[in-house]
């Protein structure tokens, strides 16, 4: 019996090694996969089951069920070592957390799946966290839920909300700095800068209008069908090379940001998002960005000067807080309006 047991153990370790060598670690093993390895003599199914069971007991295999069939998955020897040191409760919790992979799992769901009492569960989680096997994480979608995942994994985009979230909160400063960089980079590639030597000739012949701008750079638009506009891949690599991001940003994150810039009317997507073109030339972009900063905290009238205007935004009525109440002869009326006089004086002042 003892020899049979040692024979099984030997076979089992052979089987495990064969599996590690032949398949990638994430492979899902069916019974046939093992039989095809020709490790088990005479393809004895009963013997195979004994072997797999011993491997499962050693925490080298994980038993799973798929479409009503038994399947197995490999576990690293290191992980198996970890698991062997755990109490059965802890191992159960660890397995549940392991099964959710990068999405993480809510504490209440662990409780439901393991049927452990809350205090035992808490103890298990604490000890697992103490051993640095699992970590708690912050889900953007459910900020109030306490969630756990394996310590070695990076949380998925779904959980973190993508590259733009730090600890589940949108990182506005980071976004703005990357967005500003992208806008400028794209802008530089979207406009043709007239070389300096050429510009001088222009000045000689041009009438007054061109002379005024002589010290500025002249930018020309590219013709229709121009294909030199930056692509998403180019922009992504430019951002990653620039050193303004602590982490490498993926293309999806950059696309997200590019779309936002399109909504800001700063960029335009061409050819179904293949290329991006900037609407403003680099000078204008730079001027715009340097201007933005001091505005915060300034009073609204100063900020308004930069904005595009139309009849309604400049008329006193357009900004009047009691416009809805205004009626001739009423408490608020055009005759008693206190906004018109300053507005008229302001208008006549310049």
């Amino acid at each position: 019996m003892a020899s049979a047991g040692s024979q099984v153990a030997e076979l089992a370790s052979k089987l495990y090694d064969a599996c590690v060598n032949e398949f990638d670690p994430d492979h899902l093993f069916y019974q046939n996969d093992f039989l095809n390895l020709k490790v088990i003599p005479k393809n004895d199914v009963a013997l195979l089951l004994e072997c797999t069971q011993s491997l499962v007991n050693q925490n080298l295999f994980r038993l799973l069920q798929k479409d009503g069939k038994l399947t197995w998955k490999l576990i690293d020897r290191e992980d198996a070592e970890k698991l062997r040191n755990l109490t059965p409760d802890e191992a159960m919790v660890y397995n549940v957390i392991h099964s959710t992979e990068r999405t993480g799992i809510w504490v209440r769901h662990i409780g439901n799946r393991t049927n452990l009492h809350k205090s035992i569960l808490d103890r298990c989680l604490k000890s697992l966290e103490g051993k640095n096997y699992i970590k708690s994480l912050h889900n953007v979608k459910y900020p109030s839920r306490k969630m756990y995942m394996l310590a070695g994994l990076a949380p998925s985009e779904e959980v973190t909300g993508g590259a733009w979230f730090t600890d589940g909160v949108l990182d506005a400063n980071f976004i703005n700095s990357v967005a500003g960089y992208i806008e400028y980079t794209v802008s530089r590639k979207s406009w043709y800068e007239v070389p300096a030597s050429d510009r001088k000739k222009r000045i000689k012949t041009a009438s007054g209008k061109a002379e005024v701008r002589s010290d500025e750079k002249t930018y020309l638009p590219y013709p229709h069908g121009y294909t030199g506009y930056p692509t998403v891949a180019q922009i992504t690599s430019a951002v990653n090379d620039s050193g303004i991001t602590p982490v490498r940003l993926g293309e999806e994150s950059i696309v997200q940001l590019l779309e936002m810039l399109c909504y800001d009317n700063k960029l335009v997507a061409l050819g179904n998002g293949e290329w991006y073109r900037s609407l403003k030339n680099p000078e204008a972009v730079k001027a715009n960005q340097s201007r933005k900063a001091p505005i915060e905290g300034d009073d609204l009238s100063v900020a308004n000067k930069h904005l595009v205007k139309n009849g309604m935004t400049e008329a006193p009525c357009g900004q009047c807080p009691v416009f809805k109440l205004c009626a001739p002869g009423g408490a608020v009326s055009p005759e008693t309006c206190e906004y018109f006089d300053p507005w008229l004086n302001n208008g006549l002042g310049f």
Partner: peptide, 19 residues
């Protein structure tokens, strides 16, 4: 007042003006 069509632009090759 239109830039060149080719993505790679060489300096000074924009001699399109009659001058």
């Amino acid at each position: 007042c239109i830039g060149p069509m080719e993505p790679s632009t060489v300096l000074n090759r924009r001699g399109k003006r009659p001058l």
